[in-house]
Computed example of a mutant assay.
Amino acid sequence: MNSTLFVLASLDGLSYAALVFLVSVGLSLIFGVLRVVNVAHGSLYAFGAYLAATLSLLVTPISPWLTYPALLVASLVIGIVAGGLIERLLLSRVYGREEVLQLLITFAVFMIMDNLQRMIWGVQPIYAAEPLKLLPNVSIFGVSYTSYQVIVLPVVAVLALFGLRYFLRRTLMGSVILAVTEDREAATAIGINAQRVYLITFIIGATLAALGGALASPTTSLVPGMGTEMIVLSFAVAATAGLGQIEGTAITALAIGMARAFVIYLQPEFEVLVPYLIMVAVLLVRPEGLFGATKLRKI
């Protein structure tokens, strides 16, 4: 591999890792607090992408720069409306029930949303690249690359990481969430509304997934099934890091994103396998994940 391909692979891996992190950290947050494996997370990513593209196409004739607020609006709408409805109408009824029931419900939501996506937007590819085109390319070690992918996406991912850390560790609501995560019964006994905490947490996680989709919409054609690919990869990242680990998710997303990018340039036929080979290798050695902590099981 020459130096040009090395730089290209590194930049590809960085931009892809930023998107994967946004989706994976939302998935990890939801599991860490609610103890629910949300299979429908991929559909929230897809809906965020499709709504962002739709809004971008609508506002572009008015002003192309309005496409950037459109990305944020799309992620908030999907996170608050779709995420709130899923949590209130479905998940709130199965907390504490068998894990297989929770898994089946979120899988059913995933299937419903996947078909709803096809009904609303059809099956033809949608492409809304205006946010990508507005910003000039930058030259990095002699390689020209889009500043949207190499600057905007990583910056948003870093802001999301530190913003989430600050929220959970430095704010009252974050402390309440951590208290419910640690011991729901004790938190409820001192007057904390656990149901409200679950709702807020799910909306935050859903918004992060939708934000990942919204930011991805200018970089690729939107096609049916995009949510499936992302949810499987997000599970691989979250499981490799250790479910519920925020900082670990960032490091793992970067590692898997880089590995995938380099494999595309060196051995593209192994692109799909690499993230899962890494996951299997890690879980065989550390079943709790790279950054997960072993917990005693109550009997």
Rank of each mutant, 00 (worst) to 15 (best):
T294E: 11
V232E: 00
P61D: 11
S175H: 13
S234F: 01
Y198M: 11
A253R: 10
N115V: 04
I256V: 15
P69N: 14
E130V: 14
S75K: 09
P268Y: 12
L22N: 01
V158F: 12
L66E: 07
R260H: 11
P275W: 04
P154A: 03
T188Y: 02
G174F: 09
G242I: 07
M279N: 06
L135A: 02
L66M: 13
V152E: 00
A46M: 13
L11C: 04
R184E: 13
G79T: 09
V285R: 13
A46D: 02
V158P: 00
A250C: 02
I278R: 04
P64C: 07
A18W: 05
L57P: 04
A49I: 06
Y166S: 06
Q117N: 06
L208F: 13
G289D: 08
R286V: 14
N193M: 05
G212K: 10
A209E: 03
A9H: 02
S217P: 03
L178G: 08
M226S: 00
I151L: 14
L161W: 11
G205F: 02
R97A: 09
L164R: 04
R170W: 09
V150D: 04
I251Q: 00
V20L: 15
A216D: 09
T294Y: 15
F262M: 00
V150T: 12
L273D: 07
I200T: 04
I105V: 12
G13R: 08
L71Q: 11
T4I: 12
F6G: 02
S217T: 12
V263L: 03
Y148G: 11
L58T: 13
L103A: 12
E288T: 13
L8I: 11
T106H: 05
A281W: 12
V232M: 13
T207S: 14
P287R: 12
G292S: 07
L153D: 00
P61Q: 08
L284H: 04
F262C: 00
V152S: 11
G48E: 09
A53R: 09
V263C: 01
P64A: 05
F107D: 05
L19M: 05
T181Y: 01
A239I: 15
A9W: 04
V33A: 05
F270W: 15
E271L: 10
T219F: 00
D114C: 03
E271P: 01
L159V: 14
G42C: 11
V81I: 15
F107A: 10
M119A: 12
M119V: 15
F270M: 14
L199R: 03
P287T: 08
S3L: 13
G213R: 10
M1P: 07
L132A: 10
